[in-house]
């Protein structure tokens, strides 16, 4: 393996495997969070929205992975001074963030595994639908990771960082119509829902599995918005994120 591969592995080990191995209890939270909303929505809708709720669970898992990355990077940077140690080494910011980000996804694996099983039973998306769903989730992950990394480089303490993380997570993955169709949201509030990229991700996912039927224009708009947000955040994170302090 190339040195950059080992550098990525360091992030994965530190940010997920070691904690999961040494403190297995930490996995319970990552499973409970997306599945609890799924359960509530399914019960309240008497099972009618289970498909949307499963897709919402996927989107929330991906988005929360990025938000957790923000908190964890900030924690490692400010409390352990890990980022300073890594800056003064042959490692690169890309390897550092990639390893840490993949670590967050690995944390979510137990929840994702349950969701995959549920998706197979209740959604059965087919190959094209599954690929479309995968693409949306990867874009969602890229969006939240770049946002998380940028915010982490600016936060100076863990309290501020976790507060940010919870706020953004609530604004983007809990309040918007991620676990149910946007048609359930009263019209004046629907405009606010469209301020969140997760709304577009949910629409694409619901369309991919036949839960809603979007016009080609609406679908194209959703992809363009989601892509533009992801690319913009990626460019901002590359430009603004600080590896070396100023």
């Amino acid at each position: 393996m190339r040195p950059s591969g080992w550098q990525v592995m360091a992030g994965i080990l530190m940010n997920s495997i070691y904690a999961m191995k040494n403190y297995p209890m930490v996995m319970v939270n990552t499973v409970l969070s997306p599945l609890s909303f799924l359960t509530v929505i399914t019960f309240v809708s008497k099972g009618q929205l289970i498909g949307e709720a499963i897709e919402g669970g996927f989107i929330m898992s991906m988005f929360q992975a990025g938000m957790s990355l923000q908190g964890d990077l900030s924690h490692f940077k400010n409390d352990f001074k890990l980022q300073d140690m890594v800056v003064s080494s042959p490692s690169s910011p890309v390897a550092y963030v990639a390893g840490m980000a993949i670590g967050e996804v690995i944390y979510s694996v137990p929840a994702l595994a349950v969701l995959v099983v549920l998706a197979e039973i209740y959604l059965n998306p087919g190959l094209v639908g599954a690929l479309e769903l995968l693409a949306v989730l990867l874009l969602m992950f890229l969006t939240s990771v770049t946002l998380g990394f940028t915010l982490s480089t600016f936060s100076s303490d863990i309290i501020q960082s976790f507060a940010f993380s919870r706020l953004i997570s609530t604004l983007f993955s809990t309040l918007p119509p991620v676990y149910y169709p946007i048609s359930y949201v009263p019209l004046p509030f629907r405009y606010f829902a469209y301020l969140s990229p997760t709304t577009y991700a949910a629409e694409i996912a619901q369309n991919a599995t036949g839960l809603v039927q979007l016009s080609s224009e609406t679908l194209a708009t959703a992809w363009i918005v989601l892509g533009a947000v992801s690319i913009s955040l990626l460019l901002i994170s590359i430009k603004k994120a600080r590896w070396r302090d100023v």
Binding site: Q7, M9, Y18, N22, F80, P90, S91
Partner: peptide, 30 residues
Amino acid sequence: IACVPQEARTAPFMTAKQTVLSYLLWRGVG
């Protein structure tokens, strides 16, 4: 170069060996 900053701390959820090992992985050692 290598550096141990002034306020550096070890992660409580890692063992001593895991701490050193992961640092070496950051440096690109197999």
